[in-house]
Design a protein around this nucleic acid. Structure first.
Length: 382
DNA sequence: CCGGACCTAAACATAG
DNA sequence: GCTATGTTTAGGTCCG
């Protein structure tokens, strides 16, 4: 095992994907074709990561052996006292055994939920790493999809654009296209947080932040689940739990205020368009926000709502179904979603400009996500 | 042990 | 007929 790690340290960038990772957003389908045996590859590849080719394993291992820069540097240096033990162990272990989940097998411990909040930062920090390393990102498909959409200027992407984002952003997704693409489509259809919208450019996918955060809290909220994850632990993302407490304390009202402000700003910036978010809705939103706060991450909900309620013309998801049936699961959700959907069309009030405005705001928020850790760091250091 | 979240695979339907 | 896109279902793993 370790062998691979040591050797081939230099072929670190040897043959990741035969196709140059230098793909530009838009034109890169280098591997698509290779989807031939791809389908099967991933399933196994995920398990054995590189089962067939040791060379690849080497590569991965090597890369893995040196966790994403930010993962180590930021995590270690940043989060000093907080959850030292956890972080330390997390950071150490990786050295001995690759931190990433991809190697050992299909590790489920992926950063999702609130973790997704800082996913932006995570990706930003390690963009190069993920771009060149054949490492499977420790995020769930849902989180990644969301991220891709959020990163887009219009907060909406076509399926193909999402594919491109995956491939552009992660070297790992330049292989086994059939598999992960299927997963992406599956996720888009499965999760309520992803909404298909008929746009000028055809069908595009958008994210319903409210939904996104709503359906995932449980797992993460219930306790430092994520921090346990090897991948999460050392990730800048995991500020979540461990940091949380100290973070909250550290940040104090100032930052919270910031958060609140951000939220209020976003919520207030679009009051016209989104006719006074129903109280119930707000309540739920706040619920979601609570999670966000806990993670010490900037709010994102508002923007989504806005986005959603904005120029979205046709919301073609399971509205009917939700309304008609499943009153249990989607109960609360359903209601809120419906509400939003109601706004959507009616929100036509929102002008294109408004939309772009909001969208930009959303961008900023996405940026904020990436800076959260820094804020934390500074605060803690101070 | 259970239930929920995820992942992967695959069948099917549709539209271009 | 093929491909891309969507939707569903099913089986498994992991985790709290």
């Amino acid at each position: 095992m370790m062998h691979h790690l040591h050797m081939s340290k230099q072929q670190a960038s040897p043959e990741p994907p035969k196709s140059e990772p230098t793909v530009e957003t838009g034109n890169l389908n280098p591997l698509h074709q290779s989807s031939n045996g791809s389908s099967s590859l991933w399933g196994q590849s995920d398990l054995f990561q590189t089962g067939p080719s040791l060379t690849k394993l080497s590569l991965s291992s090597v890369l893995l052996s040196q966790p994403p820069p930010s993962l180590v540097t930021s995590a270690v240096s940043q989060v000093a006292p907080v959850s030292m033990s956890a972080l330390v162990s997390a950071v150490r272990s990786p050295v001995l055994q690759p931190p990433t989940p991809n190697i050992g097998g299909p590790i489920r411990r992926r950063i999702s939920d609130k973790s997704a909040l800082s996913l932006a930062g995570e990706i930003q920090r390690n963009r190069e790493f993920y771009k060149n390393a054949d490492v499977r990102p420790p995020f769930t498909y849902a989180s990644l999809i969301r991220q891709s959409i959020i990163e887009s200027p219009d907060k909406q992407l076509t399926l193909n654009e999402i594919y491109n984002w995956f491939q552009n952003t992660f070297c790992y997704f330049r292989r086994n296209a059939a598999t992960w693409k299927n997963a992406v489509r599956h996720n888009l259809s499965l999760h309520k947080c992803f909404m298909r919208v008929e746009n000028v450019k055809g069908a595009v996918w958008t994210v319903d932040e409210v939904e996104f955060y709503k359906r995932r809290p449980q797992r993460c909220t219930t306790g430092g689940v994520q921090s346990k994850s090897p991948t999460l632990t050392h990730s800048p993302t995991l500020y979540g739990d461990a940091l949380n407490a100290s973070l909250q304390a550290a940040l104090g009202d100032s930052n919270i205020g910031f958060l609140n402000n951000s939220m209020s700003t976003s919520t207030t910036t679009s009051p016209e368009k989104v006719p006074s978010p129903p109280l119930e809705h707000r309540a739920s939103m706040e619920g979601a926000m609570m999670h966000i706060k806990q993670e010490a991450v900037p709010p994102v909900l508002p923007s989504s709502m806005v986005t959603e309620s904005e120029g979205l013309v046709h919301l073609i998801k399971r509205e009917v179904l939700e309304q008609g049936m499943d009153g249990e699961e989607t109960e609360g959700v359903g209601v809120e979603v419906d509400e939003e959907r109601v706004y959507g069309p009616g929100a036509s009030v929102g002008t294109p400009m408004d939309q772009s405005h909001e969208l930009e705001e959303g961008d900023e928020m996405a940026e904020d996500l990436s800076m959260v850790p820094d804020v934390v760091e500074e605060t803690l250091e101070a």
